[in-house]
Computed example of a mutant assay.
Amino acid sequence: MKLKIKMGIDLLMTALLLCLMAYQVTGQKLHEWFGTGMLVLFLLHNILNIRWYGSLFKGKYTLLRAMQTLINISVLISMLCLGFSGIVLSRHIFAGLPIQGPMATARTMHLAASYWGFVLMSIHLGFHWSMVLGLFRRLWSRKKTPATFVWLMRFIAIFIAGYGAYCFHKENIVSYMFLKQEFVFFDFEQSAVSVFAGYITMMGLWVFIGFYTVKGLRKITSQSRRKE
C-alpha cells in the first residue's frame, strides 16, 4: 500500500513538473497553484522516505551511492530555493501573507533553481527508472518480453533523448541554469502540444542519462567485486 502511495505521489510530481515548466501555457495563477501542489507533494515524498535521511551516515559509500546522495541533496536544495522564492514572488496564493523578501534575488533564485530542479529531478527519476520498468514488466502478461519489442523501446528511448538534447540546446537552458541570461523569453504563440513535447523529451534525455549512468556504475562495481 505504501509503495503504491509513493508511486502515485511520484507520478503526480512528474506531471506537475512538466506543467510548471510550461509557464507560457498555464499562466501565472495556475503556475502558482501547480507550484504549491508540487511543494506539498515533495514534502509528503520526503516524509514517506524519511528513513533515507537516517541512513545517510551509515554504511559504506560506493560511487553510485555517493552520486545518488548528491543528486537527492541537490534536489532538496533546489526545492527549498523554489519554495522560498515562489512565496516571495507570489501574486495570488501567498500575496496576502506578511512575507517579504528581496524581489530581484528571489526572481534570480527562482529562475536558476527551476531549471536546475528540472534537470536534477529528471536525473533522480532516471536513477529509479528500473523500478518503473519493473512495474511495467509485472503488468505485462507475458513471462518473457519479445526481443523485437525491447529493441523497439530502446530505439524510441534513443530518439526521445536525442530530440531532448536538441530542444535543450535550442531553448538555451544552460544559460538559465548558470544565469548567463537572467530573463526567460517565452514564446506565447507556441502551441501547448509543442511546449509539452519539448519538455517531455528534455526530461526523457536526463532520465536516459540517469538510467544508463546507474546501469554503468553497477556493472563497474560488479566487475570490480569479481576481480577481488
Score class of each variant (00 low, 15 high):
Leu3Met: 09
Leu3Pro: 00
Leu3Ile: 10
Ile5Leu: 15
Met7Gly: 05
Met7Pro: 00
Gly8Leu: 12
Ile9Gln: 01
Asp10Glu: 11
Leu12Arg: 09
Met13Gly: 09
Met13Arg: 07
Thr14Tyr: 08
Thr14Met: 14
Ala15Met: 15
Leu17Gly: 11
Cys19Gly: 01
Leu20Glu: 06
Ala22Phe: 06
Val25Pro: 00
Thr26Asn: 08
Gly27Tyr: 07
Gly27Ile: 06
Lys29Val: 14
Lys29Asp: 07
Lys29Ser: 11
His31Gln: 06
Glu32Tyr: 04
Glu32Ile: 02
Phe34Tyr: 14
Phe34Cys: 09
Val40Gln: 10
Leu48Met: 14
Asn49Trp: 02
Arg51Pro: 01
Trp52Thr: 10
Tyr53Ser: 04
Gly54Tyr: 08
Gly54Met: 08
Ser55Lys: 15
Ser55Glu: 12
Ser55Leu: 13
Phe57Trp: 13
Gly59Pro: 00
Lys60His: 11
Lys60Ser: 07
Thr62Ser: 15
Thr62His: 05
Leu64Thr: 03
Met67Ser: 10
Gln68Asp: 03
Gln68Phe: 00
Thr69Cys: 06
Leu70Lys: 10
Ile71Asn: 10
Ile73Ala: 14
Ile73Cys: 07
Leu76Ser: 03
Ile77His: 05
Ser78Leu: 06
Cys81Ile: 13
Ser85Val: 06
Val88Asn: 09
Leu89His: 08
Ile99Trp: 04
Pro102His: 15
Pro102Met: 11
Pro102Trp: 14
Ala104His: 13
Ala106Leu: 12
Arg107Asp: 09
Arg107Ala: 14
Leu111Glu: 01
Leu111Arg: 02
Ala112Pro: 09
Ala113Val: 05
Ser114Tyr: 10
Ile123Phe: 14
Gly126Cys: 12
Gly126Tyr: 08
His128Lys: 03
His128Glu: 02
Ser130Arg: 14
Val132Ala: 01
Leu133Tyr: 02
Arg137Val: 00
Leu139Met: 12
Lys143Met: 08
Lys143Ile: 04
Lys144Ser: 09
Thr148Phe: 10
Phe149Asn: 04
Phe149Arg: 09
Trp151Leu: 11
Trp151His: 13
Met153Phe: 11
Arg154Asp: 08
Ala157Gln: 12
Ala161Cys: 06
Ala161Asn: 04
Tyr163Trp: 15
Tyr166His: 13
Tyr166Pro: 06
Phe168Leu: 11
Phe168Lys: 05
Phe168Gln: 05
Asn172Asp: 14
Ile173Lys: 03
Val174Gln: 07
Ser175Met: 11
Tyr176Phe: 15
Met177Val: 08
Met177Asn: 07
Phe178Ser: 10
Gln181Thr: 13
Glu182Arg: 14
Phe183Glu: 12
Val184Cys: 11
Gln190Leu: 15
Ser191Gly: 04
Phe196Gly: 02
Ile200Glu: 02
Thr201Asp: 09
Met202Ala: 07
Met202Phe: 05
Ile209Arg: 03
Gly210Val: 04
Phe211Pro: 01
Thr213Asp: 07
Ile220Thr: 05
Ser222Tyr: 04
Gln223Ser: 07
Gln223Met: 05
Lys227His: 04
Glu228Asn: 04
Glu228Arg: 02
